[in-house]
Amino acid sequence: MAVSQTINRALRTLPAWTIYIVGALYAVWQFWLALNQVGPYLVEPINVLERAYGEVGLILMVVGLMVTPLRQWAGVNLIKFRRAIGVTAFFFVLAHFLVFAILDVQSLERVWTEIVKRPYVTVGMASFLMLIPLAVTSNNLSVRKMGAASWRKMHKLTYPAAVLGAIHYLWLVKGFQLEPIIYLVVILGLLSLRMKWNRARVAA
């Protein structure tokens, strides 16, 4: 456990708000690259920016889901970062939605049509809507007001939100592509780990 101790010690001095700062800087940096059509944004910045924000949102959801298993199985404690990771994930998904609505689809009417008519958009939208109450209640006041038990229960919405996010990705690509499948498998793996662990605890 020497490695996990070292990691825990190294992270002890790092404040959680670093996640917000890094997240915001990264989002702004990507937007600036897209605006100036640099690097991957050279030719079609809208689509690439839309995907970049969406993918970071999905990655952060996966990282958020890793916090508990990492503590249980590897002794690495990232719990103080979890709220920041989750809220930053929400902001990236929000940015992803805004690029989709404003820059890509470009009209409210068409946004609605897309949500209703395209299953992969419906699924992505459902995931986004689930994240909204989670982001709004990601503060100590809400935990106190709601009570820890019901707060925790509501925040289990992260599970379906992550699964729907991965399905959204899998559904929008053409042909047999590996990346979205990897996300879905990792998310389902992390969730199944949790189920086993819960059952084990109940048995004990």
Binding site: A34, L35, Q37, Y41, V43, E44, P45, I46, L49, L103, D104, V105, Q106, R110, T113, E114, K117, R118, P119, Y120, W171, L172
Partner: peptide, 22 residues
């Protein structure tokens, strides 16, 4: 005739940058 997963009614001409209109 839409693609089952997206609309074919409009398109984005490549080269218009981040604010290209459909």
């Amino acid at each position: 005739v839409d693609h089952p997963r997206w609309s074919q009614a409009s398109e984005r001409r490549i080269g218009g940058g981040l604010f290209a209109a459909r």
